[in-house]
């Protein structure tokens, strides 16, 4: 079985802040990591490979330094890494990204399954997976929480819904996005790390994948950022002052009124 896992390098979101004075992202000391949901997708792919045989290819679109994320993927069990990288991709929204990835996947040839994390923690859009499925015209399921079996070109799985789950069956090739509940990702192994160190990622440029320049990057995006800003919250607040006992007294009075 040939499995492709889409991974994304993201800043560790909990550390990112917008400096309200300069309106810039304070990224100092912010580490780049593999999108946590993608780790689960990768783990699911590696488990499938261990069960049914085959190969796992990690693919990422990003600047050259995103190769680091492909190394992580190989250290955790992927067989190879593909870096889709070109200055022409800059400014891509999810629409242009799914186009670019679709062209790259087509370039890689036949596959059975594409796995994605349910969303990336920097954008939280959850759109590239479904967009990619549509562009490749393959069946797709979001929020897989369990893969039951995968035989004779048919995959059975459970899809997490807001109020329970659905048992699903679909023919391959297909794409699915996974939620955290699907597994507990492994840490990289020593042998994996060594393999990762030697790994040479296949680099694909816009020309390599035969992309239409009008569909790439900012040019190919259907959405544009009008402005980026620090969220403003305002409330008419009333500070309760005094000793701790006095503060608690006032709180109790307010609670009495409210409840």
């Amino acid at each position: 079985m040939k499995i492709i896992v889409c991974v994304k390098q993201v800043p560790d979101a909990k550390d990112v802040r917008l400096d309200p004075k300069t309106n810039t992202l304070a990224r100092e000391g912010v580490e780049s990591i593999m999108n946590p949901f993608d780790r689960h997708a990768l783990e699911a792919a590696v488990v499938l490979k261990e069960q049914y045989g085959g190969t796992v290819t990690a693919i990422t679109m990003g600047p050259p330094q995103a190769e680091e994320t492909l190394r992580d993927a190989v250290a955790c069990g992927a067989d190879e890494g593909v870096l889709v990288s070109d200055r022409a991709f800059a400014g891509a929204d999810t629409w242009a990204t799914s186009y670019t990835l679709a062209k790259a996947v087509e370039k890689l040839g036949e596959f059975d399954l594409i796995l994605c994390g349910k969303q990336a923690i920097d954008g939280d859009t959850a759109q590239v997976g479904p967009g990619l499925a549509q562009r490749l015209d393959i069946p797709y399921v979001a929020y897989a929480r369990k893969i039951t079996e995968c035989v004779d070109g048919v995959i059975r799985l459970e899809r997490l819904m807001d109020d329970g789950y659905d048992e699903i069956e679909m023919g391959m090739p297909a794409l699915m996005t996974v939620v955290k509940e699907i597994n507990e990702p492994r840490v990289p192994s020593l042998k994996g790390k060594m393999k990762a160190k030697k790994m040479q990622a296949t680099v694909l440029t816009a020309a390599d994948i035969g992309a239409d320049p009008e569909c790439l990057g900012l040019q190919g995006s259907t959405t544009q950022v009008v402005k980026v800003f620090s969220p403003q919250f305002s409330a008419e607040r009333c500070m309760l002052t005094g000793t701790v006992d006095e503060q608690v007294d006032q709180l109790l009075v307010k609670l009495e009124e409210l409840l």
């Binding site: 929204d93 999810t94 629409w95 799914s98 939280d124 859009t125 959850a126 759109q127 997976g129 479904p130 967009g131 499925a133 549509q134 562009r135 797709y140 399921v141 979001a142 929020y143 997490l160 819904m161 807001d162 995006s221 259907t222 959405t223």
Partner: peptide, 23 residues
């Protein structure tokens, strides 16, 4: 932006070749 909305609306947007802003 429910499980259902977040699942098929992005696919729909791609079909229509238009932009979608999530959440």
């Amino acid at each position: 932006a429910t499980a259902i909305g977040r699942s098929f609306i992005p696919r729909l947007a791609t079909m229509l070749a238009t932009g979608l802003t999530a959440d």
